[in-house]
Nucleic acid binder design. Structure first.
Lengths: 265, 265
DNA sequence: GTCATTTTTGACGGGTTGTCAGAAAATCTA
DNA sequence: TAGATTTTCTGACAACCCGTCAAAAATGAC
């Protein structure tokens, strides 16, 4: 917002500094979550840590909530890259079919929650109206686009499954309806399951002792129910998990190390 | 609103007033959500509205978060009563089997979100660590018990289904494992679906145009997959929805009007 | 080196939470 | 009923935090 739209002119040192600071703010805010929880993020603390006054931060973000929203957009981008890694991995292996790619995305979601737990926390935090209502519409749109991209990845896999005849569209139904059902089903099952696991202390008390395994089982049940070939084979599934998980963890490391720069808005 | 007369130890007028105030605080805080959102709840506002100083409120609750937690416990109790209404309704109708009772709980969850939307909001809000970490352990336990009660209701229905042979425990598996799978599956599907519906603006953009219908469809698919008899019949399901929903809405009205007193802790 | 422009500052006003010593009220006792 | 004791309430206080804005400082063009 403080940077004037200069396209051809080389950036002046000051402009460079300002642009870099946007990233620096986010890089500073993010690790605070791990150290002191979400509530430890404050304009004060961020400003102090990067050696600048609060007023300056407000030149970049209109409020704290918008910083959170930007962090959330980053988080979703990371998740999306993990999804893509799973898809690529499955497509590269001739032994893997479309269904494995789909399962792989589920595994990727699990790895994401484990490897980028703070990001997962952020994603949940920004949903809450005290946060949400203060955010700017522009950044909300950016986030929505990131999320749509994630959904699109799942849709892509489903589309390929239909094209490959692994998945039959029932007579009288449309591919869109089927896609909607699967996407929303898996989304609810995985997102809901992981949120419940992360935030419901009464889980073991309620007889849910193995949420992850149960979650996978339920996803498989859903895919079986819509007739996604090949049908669930626990042994094969376990092999996919065992081989894909380390790959995704390595990818996580890669993502984490990569510069967080790029478009932020 | 009036506490049942205690025989052994008559309450002094002052004690009565104090005890009643606990309820009054909650009754005052709750409607603030509808008016100004969650962020409009403040010790200041509550104290002012019931004609007392902030200090007095702190004699009842150690902080704002504990008030929210108490409201959440109330909320879960309301949901539980709605669940029970659905179960009772299904058991009273000879045309309804165990599976209808299970579906009924799902309908009840939908009605709960629609009729007690503020309560649903509260339930989500207290999960967030900035809130959660400030709450007292005692009240957290109370809440956990309320939630366990809800889960137990679902477990009860599943147990009856197994007993009635509507649901077969697969050879090599235990009833506990099957129950866990169904409970966690439905919980994730419904809770996740409703949270996504309520907080994800990118939903239509992502091709999810009918979240509720899709959600029901997926629940039915899950129950079909585990072989819960009778198998899904859209027509019959619709009849259950059409008859049960008004009943549950009426029950909601009843619950809403009923005194919110009782154990609060 | 000058001067217009951009950027940063830091003090200000308004809010919130939680505490606590002292005031007030209620209850008890004689 | 009057005083003593206990309980309860108060309101000021300290410590945060947020967002603004006029004035100061830095920048960079000429």
């Amino acid at each position: 917002m403080t940077v004037s739209p200069q396209h051809d002119r080389p950036l002046t040192p000051k402009q460079r500094e300002i642009r870099a600071r946007e990233t620096r703010i986010l890089d500073t805010a993010h690790p605070m979550i791990r150290r002191g929880g979400l509530s430890s993020i404050s304009m004060n603390a961020i400003a102090e840590q990067i050696g600048v006054t609060r007023g300056t931060i407000y030149n970049h973000f209109p409020n704290k909530e918008d910083i959170l929203l930007s962090l959330a957009a980053r988080a979703v981008r990371r998740r999306s890259r993990l999804f893509q890694a799973a898809i690529d991995w499955a497509e590269a292996d001739p032994k893997c079919g479309s269904r494995d790619a789909c399962s792989g995305i589920g595994i990727a979601a699990e790895v994401y929650v484990d490897q980028f737990n703070d990001d997962f926390t952020i994603e949940q935090a920004i949903r809450h109206d005290p946060v949400w209502e203060k955010t700017s519409a522009r950044r909300r749109d950016v986030l929505a686009d990131c999320e749509t991209a994630c959904i699109t990845q799942v849709g892509y896999v489903i589309g390929h499954a239909i094209a490959a005849r692994d998945l039959e569209v029932p007579t009288g139904a449309t591919a869109e309806a089927l896609t909607q059902q699967i996407v929303f089903g898996l989304w609810s099952l995985v997102y809901g399951g992981l949120v419940i696991e992360a935030t419901s202390p009464s889980l073991p008390q309620s007889g849910i002792t193995q949420p992850r395994q149960t979650m996978r089982h339920n996803c498989a049940a859903l895919l079986d129910q819509v007739g996604w070939q090949p049908m669930h084979d626990p042994a094969h599934y376990q092999i996919v998990i065992d081989k894909l998980t380390p790959h995704l963890i390595a990818t996580s490391q890669l993502i984490r190390n990569q510069s967080t720069s790029g478009e932020d808005s």
